[in-house]
Write a protein that binds this DNA or RNA. Sequence first.
DNA 1: GCCGTTTTCGGCCCGACTGTTTTCAGTCG
Length: 596
Amino acid sequence: MENVEIARVLSELADLLEIRGANPFRVRAYRNAVRTVRGLTRSLSTMVQEGEDLTDLPGIGKDMAGHIQELSTTGSLELLEEVCREVPRSLATLVKLEGVGPKKASKLWKELDVTNLDDLEAALQAGRVQELEGFGAKSAAKILRSIREVRQRQGRFLRYEAEQYLRPLLEYLRSTSGVERIEVAGSYRRGKETVGDADLLAQVDGGEEEQAAVIRHFTSFPGVDRVVMSGGTRASIMLGSGFGVDLRVLPARSYGAALHYFTGSKEHNVEIRKLALRKGLRVSEYGVFRVSEEGREGGEAAEGGPEAGERLGGEAEEEVFAAVDLPWIPPVLREARGEIEAAREGTLPRLVTREDIRGDLHMHSTWSDGKNSILEMAEACRDLGYEYMAITDHSEAVRVANGLTPERVRAQWKEIEEVREAVAGIHVLRGLEVDILRDGTLDLPDEVLEGLDIVLVAVHSSMGLEQAEMTRRVIRAIRHPAVDVLVHPTGRLLNRREPYAIDMDAVLESAAEAGVAVEMNANPHRLDLNDVHLLRARELGLRVSIATDSHRPAHLDFMEGGLLQAQRGWVEKERTLNALSLESLQEWLARPRNGR
DNA sequence: GCCGTTTTCGGCCCGACTGTTTTCAGTCG
């Protein structure tokens, strides 16, 4: 059983236990375990097989280790089945709705015999829900709307889409009088590939009236479909696109603390707060405060209000980190995946940036399914200031994309030669995105491969193979001595297609052994590899090519989003293939390998 | 259910908003 599946089962179990009324800390323990499992770079099943002690993992104790072992060996979990005999499993879907938590889900089930979305929708339409104690007409309407939204939009918004929705709104808010500063916090600021909604923070100097004016201005943005909620210091709107945006207004003195708090991740914040508590400090979105003795004993943080005690900082984000003796940590790293320890030890990665990028090693032309000629792509890359680029059209097997036969490959080389002469200041590499055939062999004869400067390999067909077969297939391809980069390694399309069944751990290890680089495909629908796999690649010392897979010049800008994802995977300049100078890249491409 | 610079028991991050409440529970982030 894969880590993602184990995480899903444990998460479902947490929801069901919560509905059953379990000790909230027990529920939290399950959710902590889920977080650990989701962030792991190695396969738990493998760890179990190799007899490793799972309790060494954070948040995994004796019981949880037992659950994981049971899941990975039998594929099922006795405890889950036991809970399901008492609480219908489908109730877990209800708590995903807006306005429905474990208590309400339980009530709906016990009093109305509602166990799933369909039941709930019917009960709502029959007017039975609003008659329950604790529910009312408003909450009934809200839940009904939420059911429709869940059905309409499975999954989250691509960050790339969110960026487009946010641009006009940010412009609007920047020109609002009273707004000194406006920033997007949340998972968006952390550069996550998808975002559920956006959290905006506005610095407003002045009193309640000025704050209220900004809130009013926000809720009257022309793109607003409806105002979900509006209070004195925060409001929440839904844009016509279905994208939700929260705004919080803050004074300058707590802006940095709030920026840190709302940037998250939640798990990162918990770690920081724990560090603060140990030093007798309280970190909240209002600032950093010294905790008074009485406050600590009583455990009542609310005593005297959220800004009680001696204020030690809060205006700048750096002050929050400084309070717990840490340097500022880039938002992309704030996932409680070791960044706090690294910051403490002074070993935070020097993340790759746009300035480090010297070229783009994956793009198409009209020779296959690209929209522009090699010349046009070369001019566009030159205009971006790149030192080099690779034209990497598809090979023959990808017929829908007009893949190149060996004859056409050779013909393309002539054209590349002409472009090299026509466009000064950039070197065009002869590349190809060679299809990995069903049996793991490559879709071009070796003598053609040998004439290429760079060989990318990828799966484009037979994506439904069993995991073992798919893994063998890709590893066989990687081991071919001509191969340089494994591109879009998991084949996923965000919100559209799951990764194919493949043991990425084994693939990445094979890539490390074979001296093959892996791609961080920057197409916003792919972003493949993901952050967790990139972390594993880091452990294995793999080189990473951050490439756009462009099919037209405008796609070359995907590099920005690709860099964010790479940074989330702790990719440094030193390991970035396309941060090498042309000379170093060519040396790397000529590296000795099996069979050559 | 997990964890330990208060270490094997007794904690576990914390505040805002909403709706349905007469003082607060539930939900959310």
